[in-house]
Amino acid sequence: MTVSEVMPTGNREDEIQIYDLHKSFGDLEVLTGITTTIHRGEVVCIIGPSGSGKSTLLRCVNLLEQPTKGRIFILNEEITDPDADVDRLRTQMGMVFQSFNLFPHLTALQNCSIALVRVQKKDPEEAKRIAQENLEKVGLGDRGHSYPAQMSGGQQQRVAIARALSMDPEMMLFDEPTSALDPELVGDVLSVMRDLADGGMTMMVVTHEMAFAREVADRVLFMDGGVIVEEGSPEEVIGNPKEDRTRTFLSRVLDPTHVHAGDEDTAYAKRHRTAPDHDGDGTLPPGVGFHSTPGAG
């Protein structure tokens, strides 16, 4: 069966269906044939080295990037169809960006309500009420009148989540939501995402937070070189990877549970939730202490 003959399954549970997705930027092939289905209420974490196409996959799903080839169905409607009502389908998918992308000229409350008024044509009072509700959901009910510049990165990202939730989407797409945050602010954002997952939201999460993926994901996709190398439950993919490439990647990001205690690198990775820059000799760079959180304060 060729891609053009693919039909949506028609099953309401199959919220995102991706068939043979390709994406190139000029000569650079970023995605080379992705096929997968995200089901209702499923939390799928996408992991992999940088440049593996994780973010591009996510951005193709709501058509921020136009796929070169392949088809994507959202709620059994083809978003890659040239005649698709992309704007309407996008309201079904909340998107959270690495760099927050809050609207700096609007307050937190206006950030959450503007699309309700302008796109969903809701009454401004009603929109304000919904926005306030969602700000409370992310623990920022009292910051509605603050502008983004007056908030910390963690608060901004939570407003961004509230903004996406205000549209009452069927599913949420997270593009490295904690990568731009100071380490001590990551926890608040992750706990909001955990609540969402517990509430049954369908979620696609591109992340480097292995602990989060392990705990919250129903399924983990490991991507490398534009393809899904390995997928399965977090226990399978992170706990017991079958593919060499997955093992190499995981040893690089140094999952703290996998390296014996006492190793200096492990302590470093635990504090920073990411891999240290390996220089191969297993020592820490000079000056790295317990409270070395760059840019904090």
């Binding site: 709501n62 921020l64 309407r88 996008r90 309201t91 960006f97 699309a115 302008r118 796109v119 996406a164």
Partner: peptide, 23 residues
């Protein structure tokens, strides 16, 4: 104006014209 602003507006379902005008 950063490109991410248009992306955020479009991801909320705003049309290109509305993103330009409002954001």
């Amino acid at each position: 104006v950063p490109k991410g602003q248009i992306e955020a507006a479009r991801s909320l379902g705003m049309s290109p014209g509305m993103s330009m005008q409002r954001i």
